[in-house]
Design a protein around this nucleic acid. Structure first.
Length: 474
RNA sequence: GAUCCGGUGGGCGAAUGGUUAAGCCACGAGGCUUUCAACCUCGUAAUUGCGGGUUCGAAUCCCGUCCGGAUCCCCA
């Protein structure tokens, strides 16, 4: 039997790191075993589900490259099917109508809780058949009252639940919409899902689902409950912990392969390997190696992983991406005449940034005239002693034949030699003059990227700046 | 509260019951250097939550305990 896995998010928000990892594990398994990966949208919570969320989830998955082989299927398109099955159960005496009001149920729970018991429906409509006029009943599943349910989990091993701990859960709401535990069973069966891989917050639901399956004469799929992802403080990962949505990372300049790489290592490992190509993940991934304990999300390591992938990405691809991040930062005319080819920028910046956003920020000096020198940098390097240096640099660079990394670098070195100064005393004032900052790529690279005209113009301006400053000091 | 799951340096995590508990991130020091990075070298950091038991030998098996999380809804 070919493996069929699924990802079944509820469209009540955007794709979260935890959900994306679940999707990844499922996708990996299907790829590994030549099976199919199904996307199913669990939108039976009509109050909170939105079309916008569905679109965002699909968009994020597609960015990550987690394309579904089948779907997306929407549960709200299958309502008739759930009702049909619910009626089969009703007819077979395996489910019943319950006319309790919400207030009545709340009171029941309150009473049980006050007695230190686990709040459960007490089955008061289990054997009653008289309808209550004017009340739309819910349909409840008749859960077995005795015995136990064994969940065979590929990650946790065998977990046993006593039926006496379970109650008769609602499978169809009074408006005829099924609840999660019911629709999930029918869909997994109808869609031929062989492996259910999901967060371990679902482990406690599994015995209920298995009981429904038994009533329907279905055999359960393989289960694998993956550990949750926690924030740095040990609580469940949430917005409080900063960016947690997949799209946040796209915006922050992460590469999709880095996101996949970081996610796959959260709860799973393969010896001491840290970096995985997608193909390597597919070959190496197995449920048996998935950890049982929850993992904390570590933004620092994620950043490092992205840096690793920035190094591996082909130049032309990074160039194309960098262009859009530069435009996002408000730069106009990216890649046009008068600006260096993007691939040259990528060449010098790819080892100097951990994200594309950072790469764009560090490249702004190429496009923008220096509006204001960084105060500390100016104070330290644009001083009176720098005046002759800057003037000489302007002369020497101005008479340069060709303007390249090597020629500009050599010119700067020759000025240093001529003035009997260390490179630091020459390159730093120059760097601040042309970039406004005390840090930039190698001085030759910096000048080559800026270009002759802009360099000379900025040098003139720096000379003026130093003069004005000296005048003020007197 | 009940039930279920988990617990190895600050984080991710490795380790058939068998040396001195891998590796990576972060952190610190040094090197390289025109700056910032990158890179190279070295280093700090763990009575494997705690207590007991089994065993020649326990991170690993058993019991207890503590802590954390999940579920208990006409949410998923």
């Amino acid at each position: 039997m070919t493996m069929r896995t699924r990802f079944a998010p509820s469209p009540t928000g955007v794709l979260h790191i935890g959900g994306a990892r679940t999707a990844l594990f499922n996708w990996l398994l299907a790829r590994r075993h030549g099976g199919a990966f199904v996307l199913r949208i669990e939108d039976t919570d009509t109050e909170r589900s939105t079309r916008e969320s569905i679109d965002q989830i699909i968009d994020a998955m597609s960015w990550l490259g987690l394309e579904a082989d089948e779907g997306p299927f929407l549960q709200t398109d299958r309502l008739d099917r759930y009702r049909t099955v619910a009626h089969q159960l009703l007819d077979a005496g395996l489910a019943y109508r319950c006319y309790c009001s919400r207030e009545e149920l709340a009171a029941m729970r309150e009473e049980q809780r006050s007695r230190g018991l686990k709040p459960r429906y007490d089955g008061r409509w289990r054997s009653r058949t008289t309808a209550v006029p004017g009340v739309d009943p819910v349909v409840r599943f008749k859960n077995p009252v005795a015995g136990s349910v064994r969940v065979r989990d590929r990650i946790r091993g065998e977990v046993v639940f006593e039926n006496s701990e379970l109650d008769d859960l609602v499978i169809l709401r009074s408006d005829g919409i099924p609840t999660y535990n019911f629709s999930v069973v029918i869909d997994d069966a109808d869609m031929g899902i062989t492996h259910v891989v999901r967060g371990d917050d679902h482990l406690n639901n599994t015995p209920r689902q298995i009981n429904i399956m038994s009533a329907l004469d279905l055999s359960p799929p393989e289960y694998a409950h993956v550990p949750m992802i926690l924030g740095s403080d040990g609580s469940r990962l949430s917005k409080r912990h900063g960016a947690v949505n997949v799209t946040d990372y796209r915006e922050a300049g992460y590469l999709p392969e880095a996101v996949l790489n970081y996610m796959v290592r959260l709860g799973w490992s393969h010896g001491d390997q840290e970096i995985f190509e997608v193909d390597e993940m597919i070959r190496a991934f197995s449920l048996e190696q998935v950890n049982e304990s929850a993992a904390s999300f570590d933004p620092d390591k994620f950043l490092w992983v992205n840096e690793q992938w920035l190094r591996r990405a082909p130049n032309h691809r990074l160039a194309r991406l960098l262009a859009s991040y530069l435009e996002g930062a408000g730069v106009e005319g990216v890649g046009l005449a008068g600006t260096p080819p993007l691939e040259e920028i990528v060449d010098v910046q790819r080892h100097r940034a951990k994200t594309l956003v950072e790469m764009a920020e560090k490249s702004l000096f190429i496009y923008r005239a220096v509006e204001a020198y960084a105060p500390k940098a100016a104070k330290q390097h644009l001083r009176g002693v720098a005046l002759p240096v800057l003037k000489r640099l302007h002369e020497r660079l101005g008479e340069l034949g060709e303007w390249t990394v090597a020629s500009t670098q050599a010119a700067v070195e020759s000025v240093a030699g001529e003035l009997e100064l260390k490179m630091g005393k020459v390159a730093q004032p120059l760097r601040v003059a042309v970039t406004g900052e005390s840090a930039s790529p190698g001085i030759g690279q910096t000048l080559a990227l800026i270009g002759r005209e802009k360099t000379l113009r900025r040098l003139v301006r720096a000379v003026e700046f130093v003069k004005a400053r000296m005048a003020r000091a007197q």
